[in-house]
């Protein structure tokens, strides 16, 4: 079965405040309650599964410093994935297993495309953790916030632009990216042609 990549999940779930149309304001505060912690953890785990899948492809096609960065990111996401599995089990839940493959925006053919995909993956992971940051468990909020910080820092390593409010809907970061390469089409993800199997 094919899963969706983290960005697609973020679009489906959306941040609490963003659903109110703005990243701030009384309307968002008053109309949106906390996210159920277990639900948020499950979604975050799905995003981490997809990120691990994507980075397996990215690392395989990268060279030099980007390969090292992709490998480090792959290991970091595996670490978060395992942490989330533990948190879900601690709450009596059953962690979902990864899908066999994930629908990525595109399949990277080289290091440059891999960097573009990596930045998009980190954007998606950031958005999913943003939802978890609104959960009803303070310790889990902290975990989500730290995961967002790591993801935003990694994204900068692959695409040297910074959003004022990572995770919230905003201008396409690639529109102002200094990294060369064509603009990604986030809204029309292609069907993956590769089915690499991350560990």
């Amino acid at each position: 079965m094919t899963g969706s990549y983290p960005g697609a999940q973020a679009a489906a779930y959306g941040p609490v405040a963003a659903r109110a149309g703005t990243p701030s304001g009384p309307a968002a505060k008053d109309t949106e309650g906390p996210v159920k912690t277990l639900d948020g953890l499950m979604k975050a785990l799905a995003a981490e599964h997809a990120a691990v899948f994507a980075y397996a492809l990215i690392a395989a096609r990268a060279t030099g410093a980007r390969k090292a960065a992709a490998t480090a990111a792959y290991n970091a996401h595996r670490g978060r994935r395992d942490q989330l599995r533990g948190l879900i089990r601690a709450r009596g839940g059953t962690p979902a297993e990864p899908e066999a493959s994930y629908a990525l925006p595109f399949t990277p053919r080289d290091s440059t495309e891999g960097a573009r995909l990596a930045a998009l993956v980190e954007d998606g992971v950031t958005a999913v953790y943003l939802e978890l940051a609104a959960c009803d468990d303070p310790a889990t909020r902290r975990t989500a916030a730290l995961a967002m910080q790591e993801a935003a820092a990694r994204a900068y390593g692959f695409r040297p632009t910074i959003a004022a409010l990572p995770g919230f809907p905003g201008p396409d970061p690639e529109a102002t990216a200094t990294t060369p390469g064509p603009t990604a089409t986030l809204s029309t993800p292609s069907t993956p042609s590769t089915t690499a199997t991350p560990s």
Binding site: P15, V16, A17, A20, P23, S24, A28, K29, E32, G33, P34, V35, T126, Y129, L130, E131, A133, A134, C135, P138, A139, R141, R142, A144, A145, M148, Q149, E150, A151, A152, A153, A155, Y156, I162, A163, A164, L165, P166, G167, F168
Partner: peptide, 23 residues
């Protein structure tokens, strides 16, 4: 963010991500 409302917690998480990228 641990003691904030859900919406403010999200804003703080996002601001923190920006600050981490700044660093």
């Amino acid at each position: 963010l641990q003691s904030a409302s859900p919406a403010l917690a999200q804003l703080l998480a996002s601001i923190g991500a920006c600050e981490a990228a700044h660093a």
